[in-house]
């Protein structure tokens, strides 16, 4: 049984996409395909290199985002600075964290919305001039000015709410 990380729907083993929300459940690598050719009833199997997924790096995560609506925990890798937004067409600069699986568009998240930084142990957030603003515990912050954040703070990018969890 696979449980969809996005909508918690249960899918049978072997499912590649969630039938409820359409989220991709299995990763794949572009370069590596396995091909089975069947000729005259016998299956000849080309040796597919056995390789497992790279383990997701969770060890040195210093901050995770708890998405309040879906209840999902979004670990952010060990980088000390990351931008948040949503990926869409013809976009020259991609955000480091794409929030589109969390209905970012409907919640008014800008393409490049805000950035979270770790400056010598004091994490901060800075709004990048988003259309609908960034809020810390309900208070809108001024754009392009770094504001400190603490464990347990509720952030809102537009209307998309998430809780900061420090480790």
């Amino acid at each position: 049984m696979i449980i969809c990380p996005n909508c918690k729907h249960q899918e049978s083993d072997g499912a590649i996409f969630c039938g409820e929300c359409g989220m991709q459940l299995v990763q794949y690598e572009q370069a590596q395909t396995q091909t089975q050719k069947f000729t005259s009833g016998q299956s000849e199997q080309t040796e597919a290199p056995v390789r497992s997924y790279p383990p997701t790096q969770q060890s040195s995560t210093w901050v995770t985002l708890h998405m309040l609506e879906s209840g999902q925990i979004l670990p952010v890798s060990d980088r000390s600075e990351f931008t948040m937004g949503r990926i869409s067409d013809n976009q020259p600069i991609m955000p480091d964290v794409d929030l589109s699986p969390y209905r970012a568009f409907d919640h008014g998240v800008s393409r490049l919305h805000a950035v979270i930084r770790r400056n010598s142990q004091n994490p901060t957030i800075m709004d990048l001039g988003s259309s609908n603003g960034t809020y810390i515990n309900g208070a809108r912050i001024a754009p392009n000015i770094e504001q400190p954040i603490r464990h347990g703070d509720i952030l809102a990018l537009g209307k998309l709410k998430m809780q900061i969890i420090m480790s």
Binding site: V26, Q27, Y28, E29, Q30, T33, T35, V50, R51
Partner: peptide, 12 residues
């Protein structure tokens, strides 16, 4: 542990 073929995933 093997990922499914990319072309299959894309079609799906």
């Amino acid at each position: 542990p093997e990922p499914p073929p990319a072309s299959l995933v894309q079609a799906l």
